[in-house]
């Protein structure tokens, strides 16, 4: 008789190109905290493929349930409150994937991430992308694109930032950008990222 129920499913990252990059950055056996980890797909993948020590925070009870069912140690809570509890440098990496634009106080979150983690990995949708610019320019209304599909009144995004905005923020606050990746769809690009990049991933030290 075996000792455990065989209920775990392998995780695929097909739909999230930024996850691939995060997977590349993270060193095996490191300690990882994922803020706003959803159903824990990334963490489960990192546990399976990089043997990391994984922790996650998620506000939605339904997603927390799915994450725990997946075997990831996730707690239900608010990332902005929750970060305060962790000791300094408790993690090698603190990940904030596609969530910075949804936080009430992004700068405070970034500072807390760098206190709790040795390095922070931040990915976000680029508000400087040409489609966003064009949408605003031609419609004269709050931009709606594939990347920002919401109406202004029901969007979870409360701060809009471009790649250049983020770089400015880092230099103004002394955050050292160690690596940067830009994606158009699932393709990596390097030319005119603030115009052509849809998603940015930064490794900040």
């Amino acid at each position: 008789m075996s000792t455990a129920a065989p209920v775990h499913h392998p995780v695929t990252l097909a739909e999230r190109p930024d996850f691939h990059i995060i997977g590349e950055i993270i060193q095996p056996r490191s300690r990882v905290l994922d803020l706003g980890c959803g159903e824990g797909e990334l963490l489960a993948w990192l546990v399976e493929n990089k043997s990391v020590l994984a922790r996650g925070v998620e506000i939605s009870a339904q997603q927390v349930r799915k994450a725990i069912a997946r075997g990831v140690s996730v707690y239900q809570g608010d990332i902005e409150e929750g970060l305060a509890d962790y000791p300094d440098k408790a993690f090698d990496y603190v990940i904030l994937s596609q969530t910075l634009q949804e936080t009430r106080a992004p700068l405070e979150v970034l500072r807390a991430m760098l206190r709790v983690g040795k390095q922070a990995i931040i990915s976000f949708p680029n508000f400087g992308h040409w489609r966003v610019r064009a949408s605003m320019l031609f419609s004269g209304q709050a931009p709606k694109t594939r990347l920002f599909p919401y109406d202004w009144y029901n969007s979870p995004n409360i701060h809009f930032l471009s790649i250049n905005d983020f770089e400015d923020l880092c230099s103004d606050n002394g955050f050292r950008i160690e690596r940067r990746y830009f994606l158009a769809g699932s393709r990596r690009i390097s030319v005119l990222p603030n115009l052509l990049g849809q998603t940015a991933v930064f490794l900040v030290g």
Binding site: S73, Y75, Y86
Partner: peptide, 17 residues
């Protein structure tokens, strides 16, 4: 949960509806 997190413990938590 908060205390365990402070100690960097391995804790999962859910407030079920």
């Amino acid at each position: 949960v908060r205390v365990l997190r402070r100690l960097n413990g391995d804790v999962a938590y859910c407030d079920l509806q």
